[in-house]
Design a protein around this nucleic acid. Structure first.
Lengths: 126, 126
DNA sequence: TTCAAGGTTCTACGATCATAGAACATCGAG
DNA sequence: CTCGATGTTCTATGATCGTAGAACCTTGAA
């Protein structure tokens, strides 16, 4: 089956939806990790939330145009749609600290989030 | 009475709240009009929403740190906290098209919003 | 003091959201 | 085929949101 997921075209990406997607600290942190460490599978993301909740967040990110999801076998590779977002809303990813460190008081990601800062080859046993 | 409203300190302005505040098209448009035309009173804003709804939006904008409200007599002067936002999240106002025109397919403000592009001295009868 | 103007607060309502558990679907390995 | 791994979808729940009407508050003017 062509289980190709739906992604909005670049021109269809709406600022409303993108801002809403990025107003959640977990989702913003997912985007930040994607930028910092490249593509990942969903399972490599490590947050203190249920699997179904993470799946929901990834769906919000995908449908808003922030992330791209590629089905590969049983896993899914998610990537930040940096070029599309940069073309559509220049400077936005930088301003919301997805592609730039915070350097102020505010933490970059979710306060309670625990992302796995492991390189993509160091995760066989968990 | 010192009916001075509470505004968050610059360092207290949270990206979560700012992004949430700006994810609403009406609120984003209010911020845009404030930047384009300077300070206004609430009554000079002209949207197809109830007074109480507008008041709610202004409260969200104020409590998130996007706007400043100054009580002057029976009216309130609202202004964009541009310097604070620029210091805290450089480039954000520009990226979300508050301080820059859109130039793309997407309209700048709310689709159904009807802001009054009138100069501050041309509104006596409505 | 009385009154109108400008806004807020209270209350309510339907919609959406973040969350999670359970069941289900899909793929690769044995 | 069977089984485990990887995620999604379904369903539900409590919280929050955008909206609006009604009452209320504050100020300035008559």
């Amino acid at each position: 089956m062509r289980s190709q997921l739906h992604h909005p075209d670049r021109r269809e990406i709406s600022l409303d939806k993108v801002l809403h997607a990025l107003s959640d600290p977990i989702r913003r942190d997912i985007a930040r990790v994607m930028h910092a460490e490249g593509s990942r599978t969903c399972g490599q993301l490590d947050y203190p939330i249920a699997k179904s909740t993470l799946s929901h967040h990834l769906k919000v990110l995908r449908e808003s145009g922030v992330m791209h999801t590629e089905v590969r076998g049983t896993t899914r590779i998610i990537t930040l749609r940096r070029d599309d977002l940069e073309a559509r809303f220049p400077g936005l990813l930088d301003a919301v600290r997805v592609t730039r460190p915070a350097a102020d008081g505010e933490p970059v990601g979710a306060e309670g989030a625990r992302r796995g800062p492991c390189p993509p080859a160091a995760r066989s046993a968990r």
